[in-house]
Design a protein around this nucleic acid. Structure first.
Length: 269
DNA sequence: ATGGTAGCCCAGCTA
């Protein structure tokens, strides 16, 4: 078993893995991640484009799909020792969570419910966020995904227009703060540094930075193209390794884009 | 104030 020095992990809500194949191809060619965490694959496991990934040296696929909605996957060059779709109280009818143990780390792909359908859906969202927090404790853990929460008003291009939205209410923000407080490396906090020059994002000693600090948003409603939000994140726990997190904003401008752009974490092991 | 798009697959739901 050869020891890996660093790991590149991409996380992307692709809004259909089959439609997004050409853009995933570009991500693989240009960034060559070791592990790709996908959300909203939107197909049953039998329809998952396994050959596409296996032909591009991603031999190990851990997928949890369903018809039409949701669907998460972990695409890896490295074989996992185990994998699981278990997350406490995740009722199973919705394919929103998968984790795998890879090179001694637990790595998860999460698609947190949006929670705008009903009060029950919103409660489920809060519970889901708490459950991720619980799941990460005590293990070296990397979780990437669509959290459907803009943690700070700075994460919203037009904050006034989103006031009261399920994406930025105080109680779900609290859940994200709980995540951030639970001994996690807080990749998210660098956004404040980006907006506040006095916090100097560009200093050499910053362990996180963005390739495109002017557009840190990760999602746009297809109908509201000038209202970006940052609702996708990668968090780690129980590890203080040197790392670099990027938002690949250029994927927004390609042919047939997802409504989300990819995140890329490079972490020294 | 409303509706605007995209993906699932062909009606209407989800985001």
């Amino acid at each position: 078993m050869n020891k890996i020095k660093s790991l590149k992990v991409a996380s992307w809500n692709v809004n259909s893995v089959r439609v997004r194949a050409p853009l995933i191809e570009k991500l693989i060619k240009e960034e060559d991640p070791d592990v790709i965490l996908l959300q909203e694959t939107k197909c049953v496991d039998a329809d998952f484009p396994r050959e596409f990934f296996q032909d591009r040296s991603y031999e190990h696929l851990y997928i949890s799909g369903q018809k039409s909605y949701n669907g998460v996957a972990i695409i890896s060059k490295i074989k996992a020792d185990s994998y699981s779709t278990d997350l406490k109280n995740n009722t199973g009818s919705e394919a929103r969570y998968i984790e795998a143990e890879i090179s001694g780390l637990r790595i998860a792909s999460a698609y947190v419910p949006c929670g705008n359908k009903s009060d029950e859906a919103y409660e489920y969202k809060k519970e889901f966020l708490s459950n991720i927090n619980t799941q990460m404790k005590g293990s070296k853990f990397i979780v990437g995904g669509d959290f459907n929460v803009a943690i700070n008003d700075l994460d919203i291009q037009t904050p006034k227009k989103w006031e009261g939205s399920v994406l930025c209410r105080d109680d779900v923000r609290e859940k994200m703060h709980d995540l951030q407080k639970s001994n996690f490396i807080d990749h998210a906090k660098t956004l404040e540094e980006m907006y506040d020059p006095s916090k100097s994002i560009n200093k050499e000693n910053s362990n996180t930075k963005s390739r495109d600090s002017k557009m840190p948003f990760t999602w746009w409603d297809y109908r509201r193209p000038n209202e970006g939000l940052r609702i996708d994140y990668i968090f780690t726990s129980e590890m203080n390794n040197e790392c670099n997190l990027e938002t690949l904003a250029e994927y927004r401008w390609l042919e047939r884009p997802s409504d989300h752009v990819p995140l890329l974490l490079e972490i020294k092991l």
